[in-house]
């Protein structure tokens, strides 16, 4: 998709945050931002839409809770009624702990596996690092420079005031998605 990508490197998260906001305000498309750790406020600076993972988590949790309540009711009151201490067949309080645990379990697993699926993360996946030091102490802002109106000099003007260490051009080695 992008045949030209400009990479601006920073040493501090504050510079990166400000530069990302400035690049976005200038109307240049941001491919992605690479950081060694989660930087607070970066999602807003990049203009990312709210994560849909919360909905996956909520739906999975609800499926776990309701599913387990129905299943326990079916086993204990319909399919094979059990007399436990003379309690009624459909003893809701006794079914709540398992429903709660199932809700937590499914919400947790659902979120993690949905994240891995969306990020295409699986064992043996080759890491494609935009620069080796983004796993250590450098922050890299990747800007799509394939369109008109942006080149190295333009980007330098926008991010130069935020102490960018270097601006390099990179052509993606593969044709795949550069974002993750």
């Amino acid at each position: 998709m992008n045949d030209r990508i400009l990479l601006a490197t920073f040493a501090h998260e504050d510079d990166l945050l400000a530069a990302t906001a400035a690049v976005r305000a200038a109307g240049h498309p941001i491919v992605d931002v690479f950081t060694p750790y989660a930087v607070h406020g970066l999602d807003r600076a990049m203009g990312l839409r709210p994560s849909r993972l919360t909905w996956v988590c909520f739906v999975c949790g609800m499926v776990g809770a309701v599913g387990m309540l129905v299943f326990q009711h079916w086993t204990a009151a319909i399919s094979w009624p059990l007399n436990v201490g003379g309690k009624p067949w459909n003893s809701l309080p006794a079914h709540v702990p398992v429903a709660f645990e199932a809700a937590v379990l499914l919400a947790g697993f659902g979120s993690v596996f949905a994240l891995l699926w969306v990020s295409r993360l699986f064992p043996g996946r080759q890491a494609r690092l935009v620069a080796p030091r983004v796993t250590d102490d450098r922050f890299v802002l990747a800007v799509d420079a394939s369109g008109p109106g942006i080149d190295r000099a333009t980007l330098e003007r926008v991010v130069g005031q935020f102490d960018s260490l270097a601006i390099e051009e990179q052509t993606p080695r593969t044709g795949g998605k550069a974002s993750c």
Partner: peptide
């Protein structure tokens, strides 16, 4: 500090 703040666009 303005981290995590709503002041950014």
């Amino acid at each position: 500090a303005p981290c995590n703040s709503g002041s950014l666009p």
